[in-house]
């Protein structure tokens, strides 16, 4: 008998996916199922938490682009 699992399908770049996996490896609270390189299923109620964590992780690694220019 097939099973149905509620969740959120997340499609992203492999690089982002590996960050998500890294975040999840600490407490295993987010990922329901890793599907392939670019897709995974996340618990529905943890989605906003994960977004915030991902944002934080990206902030550390990224340089803000230069945005100067006269008006």
């Amino acid at each position: 008998m097939p099973r149905a699992i509620r969740g959120v399908l997340v499609e992203c770049d492999p690089s982002i996916k590996s960050i998500i996996v890294k975040i999840d490896s600490e407490e295993h609270a987010y990922i329901v199922e890793e599907l392939d390189d670019q897709t995974l299923v996340i618990k529905e109620n943890m989605m906003s938490m994960l977004k915030a964590r991902l944002e934080d992780a990206l902030k550390e690694t990224q340089q803000p682009a230069d945005d100067s220019g006269s008006d």
């Binding site: 097939p2 699992i5 969740g7 499609e11 982002i16």
Partner: peptide, 23 residues
């Protein structure tokens, strides 16, 4: 927007290929 999120349902554990394909 580094990820695209779609809420829904994952179906798995099909008994055989035929059942999976039909569904």
């Amino acid at each position: 927007e580094r990820m695209k999120a779609t809420p829904g349902f994952l179906f798995r554990d099909f008994e055989n290929q035929k059942e999976y394909e039909g569904c």
